[in-house]
Design a protein around this nucleic acid. Structure first.
Lengths: 254, 254
DNA sequence: CTACACCTTAACGTAACGTTAATGTCAACA
DNA sequence: TGTTGACATTAACGTTACGTTAAGGTGTAG
């Protein structure tokens, strides 16, 4: 079976230009050149091309693909694992970009809702505002405004007892956390208790609990200095400790 | 406050080349040109530059940024929301790539298991140990031991009947495929039956079935010559036929 | 007056091809 | 045999957002 550029291009689903380019950069040379100067590819070249396209689809750089196919002692598996790492990194970058866009969008909304704030009154309302100010933006940016609004509604409908319970939970979390912190082990029973209390506390604010969101918030406690300051006030390092505990608690620690 | 290229570049954290380029493409013109031809920027330009850099950080194309800052009737919010969509799409693509790499890696193991299986029929545990020795450490360190153990347990817990069923399914897939192949139509009933058998077979190896992953694997059968060789052994073209059938079966054939 | 830091324009290089442009080749048909 | 149309070839510019020389003019401190 011999193929010209177009035939090979057709069965492989790529352009003739691509084949010429691959010839040019030495990634796929034709089996031979016809008397009239045509590129003629054979079965071996088809297989190599399949390899190339396979890696290309995975987003691997052509230079590296060149190494892959030129090195017969190539470690296929290691290469894929390394490539996977790169993809994860890329995804993280995009996640960051998304978070930034979200933040911007919610900040924009924040400005608009500021004018609506006159409607709000009462101490619960004040608390809400504070909460909003403190956590709204970040949480909103991460999990969408819907959940935050749900949370606000939930909070507005709290009874006095429920409200007291929340306050108590908040201090419980902190106290348990501090004692656990002294043990130094975020997997310890006490630390896990703290993480569980933290989850309970959260559930007063979030309508739908999810491990991912919980772990994400815990990570934020470390990333955002305002949160860090709150938890580290008495014992520096507590925020990080809480994050570790929550990661274990949620099973999100890889 | 007036700035030359370098001063502005320093406070903005960008190169002088970038500023000249922005001038060149008309995205940021200096306030005036000094008698000696130097670019002189003012406060207004600093603000515009901040805008530019802000959008740039979000990954927005310079052409679009140009529109944004040149159009006073520009709808920032819509633009950002659209940009967000694009980012989400990109992330999905990367997720797909990651999933493909993962499946490739695990399928690779599956393939090795298969060839070993024939040799060591009846010695499942021994094979498990070998697998563990060869790949356990590496995969475990990269992906956490959980998934590997899941896979092992799944395999270990197979009854003899289940094991036979897998073997039978594998040959069923191949036989059905070969007969269907002669019809030449991957949408034919028989070809779809083969795709379904293939799915059943897969489900013995994959913990969570998904159309995307199934289609991805089928594509790999065409892209990777080792898989191609397996399916094309008797009738060349079978791998591609299976892929087409699976693409139709999963509805991923656009 | 001389360094020396700073400014300028011009032009090539990057990754992976797409897209003309100008021209040669092959098979088929009148 | 001549023509047509589908194929092939090389060459070269265009794409993004600058980095990197190169060659030369300007401003100011010593």
């Amino acid at each position: 079976m011999e193929y010209t550029v177009q035939k090979l291009g057709q069965i492989a689903g790529i352009s003739t230009r691509t084949l010429r380019y691959y010839d040019e950069i030495g990634i796929l040379k034709p089996a031979r050149i016809s008397s009239s100067g045509y590129r003629i590819y054979g079965v071996k070249e088809v297989n190599i091309l399949q390899q190339i396209l396979f890696y290309r689809e995975l987003g691997v750089n052509l230079d590296i693909i060149k190494d892959i196919i030129n090195t017969n002692t190539f470690d296929y598996k290691t290469a894929l694992i390394e490539h996977r790492e790169k993809l994860l990194e890329k995804r993280n970058q995009i996640n960051l970009l998304i978070a930034n866009v979200d933040k911007t969008l919610s900040a924009e909304e924040g400005r608009i809702s500021m004018s609506d704030k006159e409607k709000f009154e009462g101490f619960k309302q004040k608390m809400l505002d504070e909460n909003e100010l403190k956590y709204g933006k970040e949480v909103r940016s991460k999990y969408g405004k819907e959940s935050v609004e749900k949370s606000n509604n939930k909070f507005k409908n709290m009874t006095q007892e429920q409200y007291d319970e929340v306050q108590k939970l908040a201090t419980d979390v902190l106290e348990t956390l501090h004692v656990a912190f002294l043990t130094g082990n975020p997997a310890s029973e006490l630390a896990q208790k703290a993480a569980d209390l933290h989850r309970q506390w959260l559930c007063y604010y979030w309508d739908g609990y999810s491990k991912e969101a919980h772990a994400g918030l815990a990570q934020m406690y470390v990333d955002d200095e305002r949160f860090t300051a709150y938890y580290d006030k008495e014992y520096p390092g507590t925020a990080q400790f809480l994050r570790d505990a929550v990661l274990i608690y949620t099973g999100m620690n890889k």
